[in-house]
Design a binder for these strands. Sequence first.
DNA 1: CTGTGACTGCTAGTCCGTA
DNA 2: TTACGGACTAGCAGTCACA
Lengths: 79, 79
Amino acid sequence: MDVRALVGINVQRLRRGRGLTQLELSLQSGFTRAYLSGLEAGKRNPRLLSLERLASVLEVQIEDLVRRSKSGFGSSDGG
Amino acid sequence: MDVRALVGINVQRLRRGRGLTQLELSLQSGFTRAYLSGLEAGKRNPRLLSLERLASVLEVQIEDLVRRSKSGFGSSDGG
DNA sequence: CTGTGACTGCTAGTCCGTA
DNA sequence: TTACGGACTAGCAGTCACA
């Protein structure tokens, strides 16, 4: 699981959780809709301040964007 | 407190905690020493994958890099 | 309402020298 | 051991058009 995909999933979940469309989030965050689409798809490598901006609009901490959802706990990162 | 400064502080603390110099961290992470210097000073805006790389070398999660140290809890962000 | 490809401008990150 | 600045390269942010 790529971190980018992880962030994408979290953003989409958070966005939908707040009943927002990509368009609405784009308006509030200042990012374009097309960019958010790619972001949620895990195809983008956002900057720290971009993450901050997103977290702010979604009313969460940055750590909530990079945190793994619990669908299997413990990283099987053997090395 | 800027997020960039926050990350910088965390990186420096974690690095020193592991007894590493900037040079050693640069070797292990692949980033240049000059860059790490600016990063720890909070002057850089790293990308998500860069954060991941740093966290990996420091053996922590990305969230540990963006998390606020508890030196006064509660953001007075009235928002 | 959302995903994708080509394009342009900006900047993250590199390399080198100095204090 | 670390901080700072300038020129350079590669990759990303952001846009438009199409489905």
